[in-house]
Amino acid sequence: MTFKLIINGKTLKGETTTEAVDAATAEKVFKQYFNDNGIDGEWTYDDATKTFTITE
């Protein structure tokens, strides 16, 4: 399955996707992406659209 990440950061904005077997696996991938890029904020997940959103 394809999961999308929408980034609404102070310095970084955009979208990316990842292929994962489930939302929990995608969450781990995206959290690592947050850490690697110094993004910290509030994030949500919409199961209907398989979209994670992080807002700094």
Rank of each mutant, 00 (worst) to 15 (best):
T16W: 15
T44H: 10
Y33N: 04
T55C: 04
K28I: 11
T53K: 04
W43T: 03
A48V: 10
T25I: 07
T18M: 12
T49S: 09
E42S: 07
F3L: 01
A48Q: 11
T53W: 06
D22M: 02
T2K: 08
T11F: 10
T53E: 04
E15S: 08
T2G: 03
G38R: 12
G14A: 14
T2H: 06
N37D: 06
W43Y: 04
T25Q: 12
E27M: 12
E15Y: 10
Q32G: 07
E42N: 07
E27H: 09
K31C: 05
E19Q: 14
T17R: 05
F52I: 02
V29W: 10
T11E: 11
A23P: 07
Y33R: 05
E42Q: 09
E27P: 00
E56R: 03
T25W: 07
E27W: 13
A20V: 03
I54V: 15
T44P: 01
E42V: 13
L5Q: 01
F3N: 01
F30D: 00
G41F: 14
T2E: 10
A48T: 10
E15T: 09
N37W: 15
G41R: 04
E27I: 11
D36S: 09
E56Q: 08
G9H: 12
I7C: 08
D46Y: 02
E19L: 14
F3H: 01
V29E: 06
Y33T: 04
A26E: 01
L12F: 15
E42D: 12
K10Y: 11
K31D: 03
T17D: 04
D40E: 13
T44N: 07
E56W: 08
V29H: 11
E15K: 05
F34L: 15
T2M: 12
T17L: 07
D40Q: 15
T16Q: 13
D36A: 11
F52M: 00
D47K: 08
G38A: 12
E56G: 04
E19S: 10
T49R: 05
D47T: 06
E19M: 13
T44I: 08
G38F: 14
W43C: 07
T55W: 12
K13Q: 10
V21C: 08
E19F: 15
W43N: 00
A23Q: 09
I7R: 02
L5T: 02
F30W: 05
T51N: 01
Y45W: 02
F34I: 15
Q32W: 05
K4M: 06
E15A: 06
K31G: 02
I39Y: 09
T25L: 05
T25P: 00
Q32D: 10
F30C: 03
V29G: 03
K4Y: 11
T25G: 08
F52Q: 00
F30P: 00
N35I: 15
T25A: 14
A23C: 08
I54L: 12
K13G: 08
T11S: 10
E19K: 12
G38M: 10
D40R: 13
N8Q: 09
K31Q: 10
V29Q: 09
V21R: 13
L12Q: 10
F30G: 01
E56T: 06
V21D: 08
I7H: 04
K50T: 04
D40N: 12
L12I: 13
E56I: 14
Q32V: 08
D46S: 04
L5A: 09
Y45E: 00
G38N: 12
T11M: 08
L5I: 06
F34C: 15
